[in-house]
């Protein structure tokens, strides 16, 4: 049926030159598909156990921001500064709170949004994120802020917003945000998943 295989030796036959191997109809055993399913499961499990809530500041061995021992301070402002650094606010809004035109991040320092009488809109922004056109201090901005409701506790959100509103470095001075306020908003908006837009937020009174 066939010639002996050409080794590295032998004449160069012209005849069979066009061939590629044929393919038989072997189908993989069930065991293979079980293993395949197992690997798929392990792959997704890896992501599920080690996602660190997708936070920029969570590194092994910590599972989430809440478990980092150093995160927190003697007062809400210091604690909030840590959260601001570790949760990744700093990467977008910058250390001095000036924002970053390069990726559409508005300033927090002296921002009219931040310094509003009450924090109800700010809590919502941090919980669910925000996107689309927004006017800050009369300047138009348009960017995309990721939600932090899943990765930060009520207390941490309260701290970071207190820091943002009262940061002496930035010259901000507005009222404190308490964990209870955050908890109340979280419960009220528990069915919401989408990011906020400025237009939606403006319909919500600044103090609830």
């Amino acid at each position: 049926m066939k010639k002996p295989s050409r080794s590295h030796a032998g004449a160069v036959p012209a005849g069979d030159a066009a061939t590629v191997p044929s393919i038989s109809s072997y189908s993989a055993p069930t065991g293979f598909f079980v293993a395949l399913a197992g690997l798929l499961y392990l792959g997704q499990a890896e992501g599920c156990y080690h996602h660190g809530l997708f936070s920029a500041g969570v590194y092994e061995p910590y599972a989430d921001l809440r478990s980092i021992p150093s995160l927190g301070g003697p007062n809400p402002i210091d604690a909030g500064r840590d959260v601001y650094m570790a949760a990744g606010c700093v990467a977008c809004h910058q250390p001095n709170g000036t924002g970053n035109p390069a990726n559409g991040c508005p300033p927090l320092a002296k921002s009219d949004w931040v310094l509003a009488e009450g924090p109800s809109r700010l809590i919502r922004i941090v919980l669910h994120g925000a996107q689309g056109p927004i006017t800050v201090n009369g300047q138009p901005w348009n960017g995309n802020m990721t939600p932090f409701g899943g990765s930060l506790s009520d207390e941490q959100i309260a701290h970071v917003l207190t820091f943002v509103r009262q940061s002496p470095e930035w010259g901000n001075a507005a009222s404190e945000v308490t964990p209870e306020m955050v908890k109340a908003v979280r419960e009220k908006e528990s069915s919401r998943a989408a990011q906020w837009t400025a237009a939606e937020l403006e319909k919500i009174p600044v103090t609830e």
Binding site: A56, M85, G88, V90, A91, Q94, P95, N100, A102
Partner: peptide, 8 residues
């Protein structure tokens, strides 16, 4: 996420 992180 972290590409423009500043010094701390």
């Amino acid at each position: 996420q972290i590409g423009s992180a500043p010094t701390v």
